[in-house]
């Protein structure tokens, strides 16, 4: 636990010095304006909830992809990975603490979107607040778990930036962050079912509707199940990646 807290504290210090790590928080308000303009111009007030939620989900994913994805590689680039591996503290709890801070900070994007909606003169009521909060926490947890996977995978990539640039919009489509996955062709559904964002976005949108939320427990279980898969895969990959760079002698760049 102490190592987790150390990771949290360290990441807070890093974020203070590098605002670009939270770049998506600068973009989210403008994206909200974009989506709100589209639904208002089309005279579809029923879709305001979609327009307000989407920029938050996009920011959550983008920050995990860019910032968490580079956590290990940045240590390697800075020449500190060797020391981190050599110290008695384990890497996984340290990384967990750092990912938790980044994920928590990215949740501010949802507040920003809400504020932009207010500036547009719109109210976005939450008829099912408990379901909304639980779904949001589940989403943040799942994101943190999958961010660990990204951090490990990107160490092995020749040019991680290519994948960081490439993995945004495909997942915004498959995760149904704005357009529900139910509107995608049937053949895509097996793919969308394993993208945790699709469960998150549907649950969060349903929490904004007055109609009762169908099968909340089942859908939340699916979301948490995918979070657990991400956590397991992240822990396995981290151990495999560290073993690989140790045995190949590539803990630091030459």
């Amino acid at each position: 636990m102490r190592t987790v807290l150390t990771g949290c504290w360290y990441q807070l210090l890093v974020l203070r010095r590098s605002p670009a790590d939270l770049m998506a928080l600068f973009v989210a308000p403008v994206n909200t304006a974009v989506f709100l303009a589209i639904v208002r111009h089309a005279d579809r007030p029923d879709l305001v909830g979609h327009a307000v939620l989407a920029p938050g989900l996009m920011a959550l994913w983008a920050i995990a992809l860019i910032t968490c994805g580079e956590l290990i590689d940045a240590e390697r680039f800075g020449g500190t990975l060797e020391a981190l591996v050599a110290v008695p503290a384990r890497m996984l709890p340290l990384l967990t603490g750092r990912v938790v801070v980044v994920t928590t900070a990215s949740l501010f994007a949802f507040a920003e979107s809400w504020l932009v909606a207010v500036l547009f003169g719109l109210r976005v009521p939450i008829p099912h607040p408990a379901i909304f909060v639980i779904s949001m926490l589940g989403t943040a947890l799942a994101m943190a778990c999958w961010a660990g996977v990204m951090a490990s995978v990107f160490v092995l990539a020749r040019s991680a930036r290519i994948f960081q640039n490439a993995l945004g919009f495909p997942f915004f489509v498959l995760g149904g962050v704005l357009v529900p996955v139910a509107m995608l062709p049937d053949w895509v559904r097996p793919l969308t079912n394993v993208v945790f964002l699709s469960w998150s976005s549907d649950l969060l949108r349903d929490a904004l509707k007055t109609a009762p939320v169908q099968d909340f427990a089942g859908r939340l279980t699916a979301l948490l199940g995918l979070a657990a898969v991400g956590a397991g895969l992240g822990a396995y990959l981290l151990s495999a990646v560290l073993k690989r760079v140790r045995s190949l002698g590539t803990l630091t760049y030459a």
């Binding site: 979609h50 290519i162 640039n165 490439a166 919009f169 489509v173 357009v179 529900p180």
Partner: peptide
């Protein structure tokens, strides 16, 4: 990587916005 990562990403970006038109039913 240009074809399968970058071009695919741009197509996904365009589809993302185009699908909003589908959502709007127009």
């Amino acid at each position: 990587t240009w074809t399968f990562a970058w071009l695919s990403r741009i197509i996904a970006q365009v589809l993302f916005f185009t699908l909003i038109g589908t959502l709007l039913g127009s």
